[in-house]
Design a protein around this nucleic acid. Structure first.
Lengths: 339, 339
DNA sequence: TGCCGGATAGAAAGCGCTTACTATCAGCGT
DNA sequence: ACGCTGATAGTAAGCGCTTTCTATCCGGCA
């Protein structure tokens, strides 16, 4: 059906080797021959057969990106950054939604492995179950052995494998955020963490606790959500039911903070007059809520691009640890002094 | 490095054909042999070589999704739905950001073509320039000739090619929305459309105008943005500068509506008391804004899943035209009677 | 004039898999 | 007994490309 290299070669009156060479430009071909080949290429509307090339060259033109869910802005921003970098290296980016399921994650890594991808970036918090972590480590090891550039983006490297990690300062950001809340005068602060056993949850919660400890303020309560808006909504309702002296609610991410604000509004609780609310991530929507969300900005796009470049092989990893992305406190209106 | 079929075959003491058969399960293999092969497979940690398989079988395990930008929720929701369906057909989904550039779109389609993808879904509004449309049509034709399932999701089929289209009722939705605004008593209504020459812009604008016409209300003004929040912000500022009797602003999508609301707020204009604002798409953020955005819901996820199934070959297209997705008016607080 | 080296082009051997096509071997009917 | 059939397994020919190794051709030098 479609024209093959051989067809082009025949039409141009040269060998397939020559056509391959003008296509790849890695071997001298005389100007006139090249010209003839180009004409034939055009006349036949030739399109390289990717799989064939990948097989012969033992390397594909694809990278993989593993996320929880691309429809979540936290991930879609990263997916977008990565794919952009892939594109500028002339690579395709396949994205995989794990929905947070460890087994799906493993499944996707295997699928990427079988496609012999050039690289892959694993984003988001990882589940911390030891058996999952070691399974991941094993697959990563195999991928690396096969020459795949593996990069972690916003999650720790599993033990035993040496892999570049773009690290967002979750802990520092959370610390700064809670410190800010404390500085505004709050002492009855509820914290709605992400799902337990998730590396991001753990880091942010740790930062929160450090700030409390440093300030000598006792922890009021920590609830767990799943980083979704709905879980933030539910958690806020529960908090309202269980506590009547809360002056601030810090959520593990913006989505949950949005849910919290919605729940408070529904219950007639004013933000921030009655209760202050803070988030994390600085999603685009954070500025459109009323009151605008006080949160922590993570350079997701920048970090993801970096990861994308490493996965694409465009950027070499020099110092394995120097891929640290600082967090920035965004002070807006949702946190004020307690009323 | 990695084990090949031949390695497995040798280890199991059978031929590669047999191994291939147990892997694909499309040919009878005796239980004992199958068992032996499975053992060898496990012992060697065998992973299929995707490109090799794709070459031999002339079909890959990948589908492509073309979007403007995955970091835009309008697209990320679609990308997510599609990838979900791809996954359940055991396919990988590569996503491509065109940033609205026709040439990028063409480039990506070619890249997908060369990967011999199983299917591809083209989302979003398409540029309406004739030369671009015909170029797209040509590539789609080639893709189809190569057996690729091409699906349009939310955009018209280019002329000359017969391709399934998941159609969102942009026109009807826009008509209903403006009708609602009119019903609330507005007559000085500004419309901020998407970028000119975009099929979605055209359809929504048409619906708006139909509603005006039906009601016998003269068009006040139509400005063009680019569907981004920032462009909505700027357009609102311009409207404020040029008109002092506007009572409503209808935006071509939610992102622009969000920008409009932000601009109005910044200028001290109350929504909806002074000016009503409406959007389109019903993005997740629409309910978190204050006032909650009156908008039109499009079943993006559902439509994208449908498109994903067709592209994956999981769902056959029966009637080419029966992929119509209705729009639903979401009446919330941002539109009230002029005041 | 004869020879050598650089620049091009071609031949051909795979890359790892799928899949006709063949071969083998029971068990069967007659 | 004998050929036949159905169930399995093996053989081997590619799929379309890259790349090593050779071959050729030419100008320049001795």
């Amino acid at each position: 059906m479609a024209a093959t290299l051989a067809d082009v070669a025949a039409r141009a009156g040269v060998s397939t080797a020559t056509v391959s060479r003008v296509l790849n430009g890695n071997y001298p071909v005389s100007a006139v021959t090249r010209e003839r080949v180009h004409r034939a290429l055009g006349e036949l509307d030739y399109v390289v057969n990717g799989p064939a090339r990948a097989l012969a060259a033992a390397t594909s033109e694809v990278i993989g990106v593993i996320v929880n869910d691309v429809s979540d802005p936290f991930f879609s921003i990263q997916a977008s950054g990565t794919q952009w970098e892939a594109a500028s290296a002339d690579l395709l980016a396949v994205i995989c939604n794990t929905a947070g399921s460890p087994s799906d994650e493993l499944k996707y890594i295997s699928m990427l492995l079988r496609q012999r991808v050039r690289g892959m970036v694993l984003t988001g918090g990882s589940r911390e179950e030891p058996e999952h972590v070691t399974a991941i480590a094993k697959l990563i090891g195999r991928a690396q052995a096969a020459g795949t550039h593996v990069v972690m983006c916003g999650r720790p490297a599993p033990p035993g494998v040496e892999v570049p990690c773009v690290a967002f300062d979750n802990e520092g950001g959370a610390r700064a955020l809670t410190k800010h809340v404390l500085a505004m005068g709050h002492t009855r602060i509820a914290y709605i963490a992400g799902p337990p056993g998730n590396s991001t949850t753990t880091a942010r919660l740790a930062g929160h606790r450090q700030a409390l400890k440093t300030a000598g303020v006792a922890e009021t309560v920590v609830l767990h959500g799943d980083f979704s808006r709905a879980s933030g909504f539910d958690a806020a309702l529960e908090l309202l039911r269980r506590f009547d002296d809360l002056t601030a609610i810090v959520a593990g991410n913006d989505l949950m903070a949005l849910g919290v604000i919605a729940a408070l509004r529904q219950r007639g609780v004013r933000v921030p007059e009655d209760i202050s609310v803070a988030g994390f991530d600085d999603l685009p929507a954070a500025v459109d809520v009323v009151p605008a969300l006080t949160t922590v900005r993570l350079p997701l796009d920048q970090g993801a691009r970096r990861a994308g470049r490493i996965a694409s092989g465009t950027e070499a990893v020099t110092s394995l640890s120097r891929l640290f992305m600082p967090a920035e406190l965004m002070v807006r209106e949702s946190v004020s002094a307690p009323g």
